[in-house]
Design a protein around this nucleic acid. Sequence first.
DNA 1: CTGAAAGCGCTTACAG
DNA 2: CTGAAAGCGCTTACAG
Lengths: 346, 346
Amino acid sequence: MNEKVTMKDVARRAGVSAATVSNVLNNVGNRANELTQRKVLKAAKELNYQMDMTARFLSTGKSNLIGIFLPEVYEIGQPSSVLKDNPFFSEIISGIEYVARMNGYDIVVSCIKESGHVKELVSKRTLDGIAVLGNFKAEFWEELRALEIPKVLIDSYQFDEQEYSNVGIDDEQGAYLATKHLITMNHKEIALVTGKIEESEVNYYRYLGFQRAIVEENLSLEKCPVVYTDVNFKGGVAAAHSILYSHSNVTAAFAVADILALGIIKLYNQIGKAIPKDLSLIGFDDLSICQYTFPGLTTIRQDINKKGMEVANILIHRINGDTDNCNIQLPVELVLRQTVLLKQEE
Amino acid sequence: MNEKVTMKDVARRAGVSAATVSNVLNNVGNRANELTQRKVLKAAKELNYQMDMTARFLSTGKSNLIGIFLPEVYEIGQPSSVLKDNPFFSEIISGIEYVARMNGYDIVVSCIKESGHVKELVSKRTLDGIAVLGNFKAEFWEELRALEIPKVLIDSYQFDEQEYSNVGIDDEQGAYLATKHLITMNHKEIALVTGKIEESEVNYYRYLGFQRAIVEENLSLEKCPVVYTDVNFKGGVAAAHSILYSHSNVTAAFAVADILALGIIKLYNQIGKAIPKDLSLIGFDDLSICQYTFPGLTTIRQDINKKGMEVANILIHRINGDTDNCNIQLPVELVLRQTVLLKQEE
DNA sequence: CTGAAAGCGCTTACAG
DNA sequence: CTGAAAGCGCTTACAG
């Protein structure tokens, strides 16, 4: 391996000092006259100089590194991460990565196994900022608060702008749009399939939107049951059971996540029923799988990739001295596909 | 913010030198006697000392960072990455991340936009090793070869062990198992739906396995068409068209990727046909979506998460001085679900 | 067993 | 406009 070429080598070749090379290469003002600049640039190119960022980081205290933290979850037998089976996260990361890269930052992604881990990583790598995806315990947020670097959350309602920046969507409105559409299609007894509200306030706001549509249309809340379940495929299957056997009056359902809707569809198919004939259904997120299934899932679309891009934007602004946190809410829209049917009057 | 606490602070508090602190904290042999060790550890804990890895990296030339590189792909309107819509990649990354973390490494993931980018990132961050996912142009491999750090590829057949380590699966055997199963179920005219062989040698080996089963069973290769298409959902839809209109003799198909199979199912459903009634179908990969669809997709399972874990294992071994590259092949298995039907004799 | 000192490759006041 | 020098926080021969 060729010897590593350092600033000193470039300096020697250009006949200037290392300090000057540093100035020129970092474009610090018009500190060097044009001739000097040219000499330095020429020497650097000839030697194929690559700046060692580690050294720079040590002297500046910056790392140009953004941390992305995910919860670690356990599956039977093996450790896992939400990254593994939730396409939502990959897509956010993809957005963050893109904007970060375009701005000269790199990203390190890590699952969090125990408290203290974030703090450790932040100080170990002197991360410039962090993005936190997913749900964590209160204890974790306490720990996070103590870190004095820019941080942005996603879909969090727990904190005000004083404490954290956040990128979310209009959950209430999304749920409202979905429910309203079902009502427009003549459904009057609609189930809400959701995760526990304590687990994520997102659920609470979606519940609110659901309720608003029902009340606005003078439908009976009693006839519109809320079915609580785990927000994953199995949870959807369980919810379908519950709808079929405990809430058989219902003709339509709004599930707060596409993955839940997929579970519902699966069970209906398995027992010889069909969506939308036996149940009109709307999901939430518009994961790419929604287009792959048959029938295609009608859903509320959010731009997940954009969400990630906004996260990186905010982070970078804050890293560069913008002192205010900010709280962005991205829009949502109804995407019509084939899981909602006009209900015939009886 | 509290002043940063450094080794010097710990040394002062413990009444020893910074060198000793370093030795104790890094467990370099039994260099310090027990009393000293205790003093140092105590001081470190009291001050809540966190070692600054940047400084350490600068002096050791190691970074404890592993780079994961993905191809950047372009979609209409916006830049994207394979990470975004291919669950396969998230799962591999999840595996790498886990093993890396357990061994004290962090991972930085980056899409590659232009040549030179990898090299730049490697030298910028002094990465200890890299994993390369996805397909790249020859030019890229040339560039990579010049980097003198451990690197491992995934599912690559292009290089021998002299050059790269690789973690793959037994593609030939997987395809063989799939095809054999279809034959066992009495199908005699079977289509292979695949991406171009030039695009990935994986396709070539799967073709070989397909062929082996056909020949072994004395079926006619003429009656078993190979349908080339893009390996994505749309490609699957297109392939279904091709099967229906150009190869209507076929009663079964083996698709080299689950995502292709999903496209095929979708089209069949859309035109009022059904899988497996009108076509028996087997996929490859066993993505989690396979369980979500109805009917559940019969497929060849590979343990993607494990693949990622092996990648990290090899990388770490090589980083720690293991000089030999290695080439691992993970097993595959047939997963029976509902998309293959016994063909009735006519 | 322990410490003084040099070194890793940059940056940044400061002096000229 | 340019350079000498100190500093970032570690590690590592080496001497004792």
